[in-house]
Design a binder for these strands. Sequence first.
RNA 1: UCAGUAAAAUGUUCUGUCGCUCCAAAUUUAUUUUGGAGAGGAAAGUCCGGGCAACAUAGAGUAACAUACUUCCUAACAGGAAGGUACAACAUAGUAAUUGUGUUGUAACAGAAAGUGCCUCAGAAAAUAAACUACCCCACCCGAUUUUUAUCGGGAGAGGAAAAGGUGAAAUGGCGGUGUAAGAGACCACCGAUUGAAUGGCAACAUUUAAUGCAAGGCAAACCUUAUGUGUUGUAAAACCAUGUAGGCUUCGAUUUUUGAACGGCUCGUUUAAAUGCUUUGGCUGUCGAAGUGGGUAGGUUGCUAAAGCUAGCAAGUGAUUGCUAUCUAAGAUAAAUGACAGAUAAGUUUCGAUUAUUUCGAAACGAAACAGAACCCGGCUUACUAUUUUACUACAAUA
RNA 2: GGCUGCAUAGCUCAACUGAAUAGAGUACCACACUACGGAUGUGGGGGUUGCAGGUUUGAAUCCUGCUGCGGUCA
Length: 135
Amino acid sequence: MEHPNSFPKSEHLYGEKRIARVFTQGEAFICYPLRVVFLIDKKSDTEPVQVMVSVPKKRFKRAVKRNRIKRLMREAYRLNKESFVQNLIEKQLQIQIAFNYVSDEELDFIAIEKKMKIALQKLIEKIEPLSDLNC
RNA sequence: UCAGUAAAAUGUUCUGUCGCUCCAAAUUUAUUUUGGAGAGGAAAGUCCGGGCAACAUAGAGUAACAUACUUCCUAACAGGAAGGUACAACAUAGUAAUUGUGUUGUAACAGAAAGUGCCUCAGAAAAUAAACUACCCCACCCGAUUUUUAUCGGGAGAGGAAAAGGUGAAAUGGCGGUGUAAGAGACCACCGAUUGAAUGGCAACAUUUAAUGCAAGGCAAACCUUAUGUGUUGUAAAACCAUGUAGGCUUCGAUUUUUGAACGGCUCGUUUAAAUGCUUUGGCUGUCGAAGUGGGUAGGUUGCUAAAGCUAGCAAGUGAUUGCUAUCUAAGAUAAAUGACAGAUAAGUUUCGAUUAUUUCGAAACGAAACAGAACCCGGCUUACUAUUUUACUACAAUA
RNA sequence: GGCUGCAUAGCUCAACUGAAUAGAGUACCACACUACGGAUGUGGGGGUUGCAGGUUUGAAUCCUGCUGCGGUCA
């Protein structure tokens, strides 16, 4: 982990089974325009965090706009994930997250980054009581 | 000079920080470093055609679908090129009228004399030729005028002719003349039509000429006929790898049934008691074990990018295109990479100042955008679009 | 990625194979009935037939291209 802001393939959440598991068993909250679905595990065999990003086709018809929003969300997560990941490593937890884009409007990077910071802060708050239980 | 419309071409720079995918090398053995590469003209729509793959496949016909002026191009096409014909607009020449020439545009442009069907309303009649109204002639009756012949009006009858009927999107060649009781291609001139011949052209077709009085409307993006073509499914195709659990099938070996009770880990197993499935030693059936087999589920690899390729030159052709030579190698992701932020600048835009105004000059700010993201690959078509340039047309203003 | 269907009044649907005012129910408005309201009766308004072209004398219908919304296969 020499580059704290990198975002390689291993940190992506993929595979039909894993994604279905997150969406069926995981918890969710909304931090407009983001809907965050996450699932916390004890063991950390692989990476501590696995993240996916999605934009619905119903709200954005054109592939260009969808791809752009996904890139912005990915970028926002990448630039702000460092403290969040550190927090998880300290508590020996593994988490799988899915970010859904809920808004109808196309926001710019500054707004998305701001919301992403709030969402990550909320996630940390949700993790706190769980770590106590494990101890 | 500016604006609009249509068509065509191009469709985009550099620096820094952080980050993503692939390739190569090095280092290290699972990480890091360095270097290189990383969306389009439409990648889109999925409307056509082909490559490639799997499966199917004796031959022929029918059905279904597609195509449809001619010739050429092409791997192929519903695409493209060149030409023909028709229609429309404009310009121009001209007639009593139909027209001729040029430019631009459009055409799903085979067949209506193979057959079926449809053509509301209006109109005498709407598809096959006649009826109706009106027209003309003949003789008769009645009335009026009149000396009579005769003339006018009305009625009913025999015949002639198919011109007139102004409705309709569409009415059985057009215009003029001869002719007649009235008329009619009945006949004549010109134009048009049909058929034959000649000439030119690869052909569609064109021109010339002769004959025929003219032979019977439109719709095939109605059914249809004729000619030609089409096996089906699509890279999530297909191939391989690892996994080898539960259940299925095959082979081999061992064992072979039913009922009750008790115990345990309770759709089962063990122990025990009673009766001993079909049958012929064997076999059937059931159970256990081993081996094989073909599928399902999720995953990985190949398929995957060197090709009907790019660029340049020469040659052939009116052109689409083709041939030759040289040069180059240029994305390969898979919950799906090619991005974010900051800055500079070109074209450009806006504002301010100078100037009577335009032009021009100076300053400042904004400023790489529109349509849009590869998902096996190519050739087309269709649709979307910023700015600039070119061409054509239209309109307006200013100047001369 | 492939295949396939639909679009008509505010809503639910007709109009078959082209024919001229695109119809029905419901909803809406007015009037009648009632002390008032409902129900009922009578009358009325409401449509660029998704959009743009074409064929035709004539298009909701036939053809082509777009737009939107589904269904289905893997």
